[in-house]
Simulated assay, not measured.
Amino acid sequence: MSIPPPPGPHQPQEPQGQQYPQAPQYQQGPYYGMPYQPWGQGYGSFNRPAPVNGFAIASLVTGILCFVPAVGLVLGLIALSQIKKRGERGKGMAIAGSVLSSVGLALWAVTLSTGAASDFWEGFKEGARDNSSLSLEKGECFDSPGGMEGFTYDVESVPCVGRHDGEVFAVVEMPGGSFPGDDKVTEVADDKCYALQGSYALDAWALPDTVDVYYLTPTRQSWRLGDREITCVFGHTDGRSGLTGSLRNDETTLDADQVVYLKAADVLNTAMDSAPAEEYVEDDLPGHKAWAGRVADALTEQAGMLRDHRWPARAEKPVGDLVEDLEAARKEWALAAEAADVDAFYEHYDTGYELIVPEQSVTARKALGLATTPPSYGDSGDGSDSGGGDAGIEV
């Protein structure tokens, strides 16, 4: 889930002309070119000593490192054979490399038999996860060196009260197995993150119009280290300006009355969001009638939740008035669900829709201390009590 930092002043320039996309590259430190040609061997030397066998050097180095002990042993045996035939130097290095490699090979065998290698690898993967952007938790805010667009190779956790690039609102664990591909990971992230934003920000009216949904996803490389987490994030729509203050409004930050009201409103929001794909009723009257039936059922449930709750004195009348509107709207939506033709559908739909437009709930919201400015719905035509963007920009 990381990408390289932007090109530095020492990195080679791309040739002019046709450009081809390249995978992200990693490098340690700046790139240094070779500004001068090395001196040539213009003159031979007298009494030149015998060269040192390259396999002997490789065997010694490999044996000391003990990363690949079996290779060091093989290189040592090859070196001894070549030294004998060619009269080269390096016999001592070849023998030392072979001995060290043999010892390393024995240690590896013991390690594997006791399960220590498995413990080491699991510890390595855990350390990699703990030091990656996937270690972010729900409710945590962070800064990303490259903002919220493209790839990110590192993040820094910062307090939410100040300026920050993103705020984590959910973490989704993907199933194990082989890497499903970037397209599949993005599809899962898109579905899960947009579905989960409402559980973190129950009152979408409180989300600024400049907030959008982003997500951090595993790459093929991080997947090999055990990375399975999709991190769902709120960020600024332009990916650079950042946010100030936490956007969290759920059971941890709201009172019981506010939570009941918002959960009841979400019942209607979910039904409104289930509208058929065909925008015009004429193109799918059965689909719109079924949708109207779902809305009518949701209105029944929402009105019941609001009616059954004991509200504080300041909110009793506003919420009661809202319940009356919801019940009147339910009748109209139920009639739309039974409409014999398009004209009859529109007649009841128009009346029912006007009874649930967001402005109808402003008074009740004000009495409960909730946001009172309806969000911008764009061209969605959504008459629900909750808004939210439809961005889908990925990180």
Results as ranks from 00 to 15, higher is better:
Leu107Met: 09
Gly378Gln: 07
Phe169Lys: 02
Leu299Met: 11
Trp311Thr: 09
Glu316Asp: 08
Ser380Val: 10
Phe120Met: 09
Glu140Trp: 01
Ala170Asp: 15
Arg48Asp: 10
His164Glu: 06
Asp182Trp: 05
Pro159Gln: 03
Leu262Gly: 03
Glu156Lys: 13
Pro38Arg: 14
Glu279Ile: 13
Leu299Glu: 04
Leu73Glu: 05
Pro12Leu: 02
Lys91Ser: 10
Glu338Trp: 00
Lys138His: 08
Val295Ile: 10
Val99Pro: 08
Thr111Lys: 02
Glu394Asn: 11
Ala189His: 08
Ala23Thr: 13
Ala70Leu: 14
Glu137Ala: 14
Val395Cys: 07
Tyr353Cys: 07
Leu268Pro: 00
Asp130Tyr: 07
Ser113Thr: 15
Ile3Asn: 08
Ala264Val: 01
Ile95Gln: 08
Gly383Asn: 09
Pro175Tyr: 06
Gly177Leu: 03
Asp284Tyr: 07
Pro15Glu: 11
Leu225Thr: 12
Lys289Ser: 06
Tyr194Asn: 08
Thr237Ala: 15
Ser132Tyr: 05
Arg89Cys: 00
Gly72His: 05
Arg240Met: 14
His348Leu: 01
Leu225Asp: 13
Ile393Trp: 13
Asp250Glu: 03
Asp284Ser: 10
Pro358Arg: 12
Leu77Phe: 09
Gly123Phe: 05
Trp333Thr: 04
Thr111Gly: 13
Arg330Glu: 13
Val267Cys: 01
Leu285Asn: 04
Gln258Gly: 08
Glu359Pro: 02
Leu65Trp: 00
Gly29Arg: 04
Leu370Asn: 05
Leu134Ser: 12
Ile356Arg: 04
Phe234Trp: 15
Ser2Pro: 12
Leu216Met: 13
Leu107Tyr: 07
Thr111His: 01
